[in-house]
Simulated scan of single mutants.
Amino acid sequence: MESTLPTCTVVRSEEQYRGKQGLQYQMGISAQSTASQGLCLHLNTFLPGARAKAHLHQNHETAIYMLKGAVGMWYGEGLKEHLVVQAGDYLYIPANMPHLPYNLSETEEALAVLSRTDPNEQESVTLLPELDLVHL
C-alpha cells in the first residue's frame, strides 16, 4: 500500500515566471512543486527600474529577506506610507496590506527570498489598479 502522506522534497528549479503583480519569480517551494499546504518560498528578482502593480495578498502574510540591492515600497491605505528595504534586511507584510514595491536602482537588479502563507503564491494576489498611478 502506497503512502499518501507528504514527505521531504528537494526542489531544484530554475523555472521562472512573471506574477500578476508584474515581478519576476523563480519557483521554489509551493503547492505546485511540493505537497506544501501552508506556505510558499520563492526567489524574487527586481530587474533594474522594475515596479510592481499595486496589490495585496488576501488573507496571507508575507516575509521577505533582501539578498541584494534595495527596494522601496509604498504601502497602507492609499499607499501613503513608504519604506526602504536593503540587502540584509527582513520585511514583514501583513495579510490584506496594499503595497507597491519597486527597485530603487535603474542599473542594478535587486534580489529577495520571499515566503508567503499562500501555498499557491499567486492565488491570493488581488490587483489594485486604482492605486497604480498614485506614485509615478
Rank of each mutant, 00 (worst) to 15 (best):
V71H: 01
Q86H: 03
R51N: 07
G28N: 04
A50P: 07
R12T: 12
V71Q: 07
Y17M: 08
L23E: 00
E106G: 02
S115A: 14
R116A: 14
S3G: 02
A70I: 10
C8K: 08
G38F: 12
W74R: 15
L91R: 07
N44T: 10
C40F: 00
A112T: 05
R12L: 14
Q32M: 10
H60D: 10
L100H: 08
K53W: 03
Q86N: 13
L79H: 14
Y25K: 03
V10W: 05
H57P: 06
T4Q: 13
V10N: 05
L114G: 01
A87S: 04
H82P: 00
V10R: 04
N103I: 03
E14D: 09
S33F: 14
S115K: 00
I29Y: 14
S115I: 14
H42Q: 07
S3I: 05
A31I: 08
T34I: 04
S13M: 08
Y90D: 03
M97C: 05
Q24K: 12
Y102T: 04
S13P: 09
L114E: 00
L91N: 05
G76E: 11
H99L: 15
K68S: 05
P94Q: 13
G22A: 07
S36K: 06
L111N: 02
Q86P: 05
L41H: 02
I64S: 04
L100N: 04
